[in-house]
Design a protein around this nucleic acid. Structure first.
Lengths: 334, 334
DNA sequence: ACCTTTTCTGAAAACCTTTTCTGAAAACCT
DNA sequence: AGGTTTTCAGAAAAGGTTTTCAGAAAAGGT
């Protein structure tokens, strides 16, 4: 059986208060007893019970994290950053993979609440009203990582998607491309759909290129969908010379499609991605892309959540981290 | 403030025992009071406190998971499987990324213990003696996922690495290759290093090919290391026509190296990987590889841990799940 | 030597739940 | 109607810790 503070007290011939003090304020107990207690702790392998402590401190030093799709490598960097920040703050992470399933997400909020997490980090995906209400219901502090919610005042940390997309497309234009297609996220229910599309349009507009809505095609989140979307897009528009893909995974889907149909990238077509996931530099060709500081977004988001938990508020509500154009091999001068 | 059972009791004009009963054995309390209590619960948004419950039930319904490197996509499938199994069992997962750091790993075992996880899943990586002792010290039930420990009697679920490697190399041989190099994990401190190397040797031996120790090169776990290892290997052995890479990530490293030096795969060199991570079918060329049922390994490992926790023992100690050769584009007839 | 302050320790309450035990009321039986 | 069983609800203990409070002993001051 696990040993308790009582066992330690008995073994060391002191009261439990003394044992507790040895652990929490060692200098208030006289040396002689202190060493006896320490010895007892060592012998009995005593470790305080987190439940009992939680009951008193009313906190678990645990943070809940919602990930929409853990197989998407984009989240790996995010998680690493969060983890490192958590370690620094002496906290633990409870991670849950929602699979973008509403029921599951809401069920997890409840679990988190019952397990007394101190707060929740919500990554990517747009914040449905239901989620928001669920969080409000339980009054759980939470922050948004790699997404934001324009309609609510919720702390968030992400990047400027529109600006990133703008720079990506601008890069293509500066390379001489004029017929530029896009593989976008669906516009409605996805958070980076709108702004990245807006950035694309903005760049075209700025360089006086007419935007033809034919030249955009939509895909859900995965490689396969982008592959299929490419098929539809190229069937419709044959004169495209470059593609702006809303994510690196999409870019890989596009390139795979092109390769399967005998068009090499970047010789016959330039493709730029978004995110700079680790695979971007492992892929052949290495992807030109917009780098997101995923590690930092993760790190900052737990710092921010911690700030929110301890202060009840947050110094800056919506935090935008810097992105960066990374030029590799998948784009070239026309 | 969070409402407690006391608040509900007061609101519903009953004792706290009754409230508790409504939640845990509803049919032992008369209808009239039951609805009042239910109503109070709804109004006050009451949710029982996990700490208090944990104190009584002596369990948290939470499992700890150790992942060596969360950025390695291999673990994504594993985690999904674990998560799904956990949801089915009404448990939560506390995931920690060890970065293969001993101090951090041990610190995490302590945290897990204090937070009263019911058990731990240890993934990949070999089980150092220190870890084993730490687990013993705390008497925490644990299982090994995607690794095993020949020297200890610990429940594990993984695949037959040697057989998998054997089949991979056999495939190469059947394709007509005779000069087959290998990019291996380091032999000493890594769990799949030895058996995959053994499988490689076994296949060569079986087909009467002399095994030249020159033709193997070692790399740590990542793409970059495999890239560098390729450089060393090809500098030494120029007549190789095929490579057995100990992981898909290694295979991608090898292929990238070859591509950067003008040798296309599979035309000039066949490369086979191991794992069948999601990227294997996204890569160009798509990787021929040995499929590991990562999802199932994850799923089974939490089932197994649960079995161990509830029964104190486990029906089958070392569980081997089936692997499978998946032929794609990175290998071809010589 | 006596009084005051400081240091140190233990008892007990508090945190929130579940569960056992006990007793009151209701239901059942003859 | 009287006695027995069953149903139901509340009081209280238990689970392991921290912390407040009070008191005893030691130290300090005159």
């Amino acid at each position: 059986m696990k040993s308790t503070i009582r066992d330690v007290a008995k073994y060391a011939n002191v009261s439990i208060s003394t044992v507790s003090r040895v652990m929490n304020a060692p200098d208030t107990v006289v040396e002689e007893k202190r060493v006896k207690v320490l010895e007892a702790i060592e012998v009995l392998q005593y470790q305080p019970n987190g439940f009992a402590r939680g009951l008193i401190y009313k906190k678990s030093d645990t943070l809940g994290v919602m990930i929409p799709d853990i197989e998407n490598p984009y989240y790996a960097g995010l998680i690493r950053g969060m983890q490192d920040a958590a370690v620094m703050l002496n906290h633990s992470l409870m991670i849950c993979n929602t699979d973008r399933d509403k029921k599951r997400t809401i069920a997890y909020v409840q679990t988190f609440f019952e397990k007394q997490v101190d707060g929740i980090i919500f990554t990517s995906d747009s914040l449905h009203e239901e989620y928001y209400e669920e969080m409000q219901r339980y009054r759980l502090p939470f922050v948004l990582a790699s997404t934001n919610a324009p309609e609510y005042d919720i702390p968030s940390v992400d990047i400027d998607d529109e600006q990133g997309a703008y720079e990506a497309v601008k890069h293509l234009i500066e390379l001489g491309h004029r017929r530029i297609g896009m593989i976008s996220f669906p516009l409605g229910h996805t958070i980076s759909g709108e702004p990245r599309y807006a950035g694309y349009k903005k760049a075209l507009l700025e360089f006086g290129i007419v935007h033809n809505t034919d030249e955009i095609e939509f895909a859900e989140h995965r490689f396969e969908h982008a592959y299929e979307a490419s098929e539809r897009l190229f069937a419709r528009c044959s004169e495209l010379t470059a593609i702006f893909a809303a994510s690196d995974e999409f870019a890989m889907g596009v390139i795979s499609y092109l390769r399967d149909h005998g068009k090499s990238v970047p010789d016959r077509m330039s493709v730029i991605g978004f995110d700079n996931i680790r695979m971007a530099q492992m892929f052949i060709p290495k992807l030109t892309t917009i780098d997101q500081p995923t590690y930092d977004i993760g790190y900052r988001s737990v710092e921010k959540l911690h700030e929110l938990i301890t202060n009840g508020e947050v110094a800056v509500l919506r935090e935008k981290l810097p992105h960066q154009l990374v030029i590799r091999e998948s784009t070239r001068m026309i």
